[in-house]
């Protein structure tokens, strides 16, 4: 699925657009940045509640084109700026990680 298609399966809004045409092949759900760093597949979307600048750094380093911030967590200014700079899509939703995860899994054809 394309990054842009996140809004079709999860209610929420894009804080940054990133690269709307980038391809998402997988997803990884975690709040531990070292866990994301070590285990998340590249070209996947990160589903998390960690709303700060370092989440963007990790996504960037791992090669994740999008971050879904769950539970209605707000996006700090520096996180937003960092995501814009690194061209990473930042999407916020009121859904929790489990719900967001299975909706994305469904959209990816995993279930």
């Amino acid at each position: 699925m394309k990054v842009q298609a996140i809004q079709d399966c999860i209610t929420g809004e894009f804080k940054t657009q990133g690269d709307p045409a980038a391809e998402i092949q997988n997803a990884y759900t975690s709040d531990l940045l070292s866990d994301v760093m070590g285990n998340a597949p590249a070209d996947s979307v990160l589903i998390t509640v960690q709303g700060h600048k370092n989440t963007v750094a990790v996504a960037n380093l791992v090669g994740m084109p999008a971050i879904i911030l769950c539970n209605g967590r707000s996006v700090p200014q520096d996180m937003q700026e960092s995501a814009e700079q690194e061209e990473i899509a930042l999407y916020t939703t009121n859904l929790d990680q489990f719900t967001a995860s299975y909706k994305i899994a469904h959209a990816l054809g995993k279930i």
Binding site: L32, L33, S34, D35, G38, T48, N54
Partner: peptide
């Protein structure tokens, strides 16, 4: 903050 999970050095 999502750090200190004991996974860094490993």
């Amino acid at each position: 903050l999502g750090f200190g999970a004991g996974m860094g050095l490993p």
